[in-house]
């Protein structure tokens, strides 16, 4: 009886042990499955590479995104013998056809403070898609720190200028302080000038009255001069008469000279005619000689074009 009980207990223990081992095995399989899923072992992927000058910001497991969607992850970041960094990326096969060989990998930060991701910048659609072990170009996007550095570098000279200007304004011997002093002085001078101008206007009124008197005197003088001219004009007219007489005499001289040369003029005109005729002959001869003959078109009689249109009777 005791033996039977003992055997029964052993059998129970064996069954429990079997159940425990099966449960442990199942849990282990489940853990392995989760790990595999987490590591994307169950996803068919294509490995591609890019090379970075340094590994700053690049970590194993970081997401690889394409137009905002996660399409893979960084699998390995390793140093090459030439001191560059090789990064292996596993891309989900479902998206590989969207990425051309000329695509670029860019390391960016998703927000001002946030995780870095590798963004795939699409290339030309015409180019062949990436394949296993393709190598992409890599560039580093600007993160908050680099933007801040850049802004700081640009603001530095501006701040320095502002400091100089402030110092110049505060300097008692500086241009601005001197200008303000001069402006103060000018304002005082202007006030004095206004006072003087008022005095001048007062005295001007007095002088204008005296000028009016002088103008009366000047008009009297003009009247006197006109009387003198009245007397002088008849004498001028007499002189003009004499001048006209001289012109008449000169004209009669010219007439006499023309009459004297009248006998020679026809000969002169005749000679000129002959000269013109000779020139014409020479020109005609030249026009008929090579190479000038080709330059002038010979006058030819031509029939005018006939016109075959007759106006209709009733337009």
């Amino acid at each position: 009886m005791k033996l039977h009980n003992y055997n029964q207990r052993l059998l129970n223990i064996e069954q429990r042990t079997k159940r425990f081992l099966l449960g442990a095995f199942g849990a282990m399989l489940l853990a392995l499955l989760l790990i595999a899923i987490k590591q994307d072992y169950l996803v068919r992927s294509t490995a591609i590479y890019f090379f970075a000058p340094n590994a700053q910001g690049l970590n194993q497991g970081m997401a690889v995104k394409f137009i905002g969607f996660k399409v893979g992850s960084v699998k390995e970041v390793s140093m090459e013998p030439n001191a560059t960094v090789r990064v292996r990326v596993a891309l989900d096969d479902d998206y590989v056809h969207l990425i051309g060989q000329d695509a670029k990998a860019r390391l960016i930060k998703e927000a001002l403070v946030g995780e870095s991701v590798v963004e795939i910048i699409p290339g030309s659609q015409q180019v062949r898609q990436v394949t296993q072990n393709s190598v992409l170009q890599f560039e580093r996007g600007q993160d908050a720190s680099s933007i801040a550095e850049s802004m700081a570098a640009q603001l530095q000279p501006i701040l320095s200028d502002i400091r100089q200007i402030t110092a110049s304004i505060n300097d008692p011997n500086g241009d601005i302080q001197q200008t303000l002093k001069n402006l103060n002085q000018v304002t005082g001078d202007l006030r004095e000038t206004v006072n003087q101008f008022t005095q001048l206007a007062t005295s001007g009124n007095q002088k204008l009255e005296s000028v009016h008197g002088k103008l009366d005197k000047a008009l009297d003088s003009v009247n006197a001069n006109l009387q003198v001219m009245d007397k002088a004009i008849p004498r001028l007219v007499e002189k003009a008469d004499a001048t006209l007489d001289n012109v008449q005499a000169a004209t009669s001289d010219i007439q006499r000279m023309t009459a004297d040369s009248a006998g020679e003029l026809p000969a002169f005109i005749h000679n000129s005619n002959a000269l013109v005729q000779d020139s014409q002959d020479m020109l005609d001869g030249a026009k008929r000689s090579w190479p000038f003959s080709g330059w002038f078109s010979k006058p030819e009689a031509q029939v005018l074009p006939a016109d075959g249109y007759v106006t209709p009777e009733k337009p």
């Binding site: 001869g285 008929r288 000689s289 090579w290 190479p291 003959s293 010979k298 006058p299 030819e300 009689a301 031509q302």
Partner: peptide, 21 residues
């Protein structure tokens, strides 16, 4: 070539052609 001259029309024919032109 310089010595070669174009065939000469008489003066009246030249004149008629000039009138016509």
């Amino acid at each position: 070539a310089c010595g070669q001259t174009a065939p000469v029309r008489n003066a009246r024919l030249e004149l008629a052609a000039e009138y016509s032109q």
